[in-house]
């Protein structure tokens, strides 16, 4: 399988502090990599670099062989960061229609209605986002991320604020995305959900990649196993 995402010897500093230290990771096309690690380990920094939102001092990053910030790469990428990336004073429908227009999604109206239904927001589609609960906002953000059928999905803690049904819905979306050969990197603390979806796992700690490889049955049976084997004492 060809690598959709290639990160080689990345170093990223915030002032003098190295947030990422010599990280090398390759994610094959169509695979799903769960990026695990404690708070402040460097997961968000790595995802922001992949999304072209953050610069790094050393190393190379390639998405389908090109740099993250080319127009073509951005068109093929769906990014969900810590912020939900939607406007509070627009309705859910208006938000999705705006993002559909800038992504040049064909039949935007139909696609937007379909996604509102998919994430269970069709009844509140014309309400301003300001009135939404946290879970509803997160579902809208997920619809916004998947809207233009991206080939690469960069998801920073996508399970945040989701209830059981919404977690199941997101898991389904990720399975479907993989079925159409989309490549996924998701950072999360929800080990059980991550292990169930992921084909690969990477563990990052203090900016260093401690482990990267295929997700095994043993990890599925015991999601905290990776921390016990590869993280520093007391990390799990």
């Amino acid at each position: 399988m060809t690598a959709a995402i290639e990160i080689a010897h990345i170093w990223k500093y915030y002032g003098d502090y190295p947030a990422l230290r010599d990280c090398t990771l390759s994610v094959a096309e169509g695979s799903c990599c769960a990026l695990l690690g404690r708070n402040g380990a460097g997961k968000t920094t790595l995802l922001r670099i992949l999304a072209g939102l953050s610069h790094f001092q050393r190393g190379t990053v390639r998405l389908f062989g090109t740099a993250p910030r080319t127009g073509e790469t951005r068109r093929r990428t769906g990014f969900l960061g810590h912020g939900i990336g939607v406007y509070e004073d627009l309705s859910a429908r208006e938000n999705l229609q705006f993002f559909a227009r800038i992504a040049d999604v064909p039949n935007a109206r139909g696609v937007v209605s379909g996604w509102l239904e998919r994430v269970g927001l069709e009844r509140v589609a014309d309400m301003p986002v300001r009135q939404f609960s946290r879970g509803m906002r997160q579902r809208l953000a997920l619809a916004r991320t998947f809207l233009h059928a991206p080939n690469v999905l960069l998801l920073d803690e996508p399970f945040t604020s989701l209830d059981d049904r919404a977690i199941h819905m997101l898991s389904q979306l990720l399975v479907e995305a993989r079925a159409r050969q989309a490549t996924i990197i998701l950072s999360t603390h929800q080990l059980r959900e991550a292990m169930a979806i992921a084909s690969h796992v990477a563990l990052i700690e203090n900016g260093r990649l401690r482990f990267s490889g295929e997700r095994t049955q043993a990890m599925l049976d015991d999601p905290a196993l990776l921390y016990r084997l590869h993280a520093e004492p007391g990390a799990a």
């Binding site: 999304a51 072209g52 993002f99 992504a103």
Partner: peptide, 18 residues
């Protein structure tokens, strides 16, 4: 700035000049 909309736009297919 609220909800990191600027980051979302910069990571989207929208051209920065647009």
């Amino acid at each position: 700035l609220p909800n990191e909309c600027l980051d979302t736009l910069l990571a989207s297919p929208l051209a920065p000049s647009s």
